[in-house]
């Protein structure tokens, strides 16, 4: 009974609080200044295509760049994988690419509801990649785990930077505002892109190597993307 009284009182307080903010008005001088700032550059513009179109284009970029890299790189790993391993890992990486590309297209257009929250996307992607690598590939290591892994991680980093730059250049067609979500998504789509050519060229098709040096490096880059995005949050990066 007393709780109901507090609720009613709280509702009244909330209404009063809302009303206290509703009266804010702007001065005619300020409105004039805003108009004056914008009018010189008031030119007709063409609205951007829909989110679906952006997603498709991003996906086409993902497939084209990935296929291009696979074509020019060494294909040792391709011949070492069984059809099940190749099919499984390709499905996971393309699936992740689709999810991250769709999310990135949503971030290019302000005012769009998130289809999948970024933490769900990241968890799904992580479970799929790490789970896939752990179950599809044999659990064995050769003697020099570290010396075999470092070149793979270095190559992944070297491919990641231009891949992220390509997606960022494309995404600039929209309105990009930095955030942890944008950093994660941009790094995520680039990481998924470079994992495929790396998988195809790598001669160490063993779960520990793939998990640590391929998956681990990708995770590190996604984390770095989130940190950079968060550090710059709100900033116009188009």
């Amino acid at each position: 009974m007393q709780d109901d009284a507090y609720d009613l009182d709280l509702d009244r307080q909330l209404e009063a609080w809302a009303a206290s903010h509703s009266g804010t008005q702007i001065s005619p001088e300020l409105a004039r200044r805003v108009r004056q700032n914008l009018k010189p550059s008031l030119t007709p513009i063409k609205p951007v295509p829909s989110r679906g179109t952006f997603s498709l284009v991003l996906l086409a970029v993902f497939v084209a760049v990935s296929a291009g890299l696979v074509a020019v790189m060494n294909k040792t790993g391709l011949h070492m994988m069984t059809p099940l391993q190749l099919g499984g890992i390709s499905t996971i990486l393309v699936g992740g690419g689709i999810l991250f590309a769709t999310n990135l297209s949503g971030q290019m257009i302000p005012g769009l509801r998130a289809v999948v929250p970024i933490w769900v996307l990241l968890s799904l992607g992580g479970v799929a990649v790490f789970g896939g690598l752990a179950t599809l590939f044999p659990w064995q290591t050769s003697g020099s785990f570290f010396s075999e892994g470092v070149p793979c991680a270095a190559m992944e980093l070297a491919l990641f930077v231009p891949a992220a730059a390509i997606f960022w250049l494309f995404a600039r067609r929209g309105a990009l505002f930095a955030s942890a979500g944008l950093g994660t998504t941009l790094a995520g789509v680039a990481a998924f892109l470079v994992l495929m050519p790396l998988q195809v060229q790598c001669m160490f098709q063993q779960a520990p190597h793939l998990l640590v040096w391929h998956g681990g490096t990708a995770l590190l880059m996604i984390g770095l993307g989130a940190l950079v995005g968060n550090a710059l949050r709100g900033r116009w990066v188009s």
Binding site: K46, P47, P110, G111, G174, F177, R233, G234, W236
Partner: peptide, 29 residues
């Protein structure tokens, strides 16, 4: 600067508040 990203089929105010929100975050930072 971002008016090209507004699409007539979408509601206006969420689009505007989305830009405003980033402006405020930037100012906080």
């Amino acid at each position: 600067r971002s008016r090209h990203t507004y699409r007539a089929s979408e509601p206006v105010m969420p689009w505007i508040y989305s830009v405003a929100r980033h402006t405020r975050l930037d100012a906080y930072r």
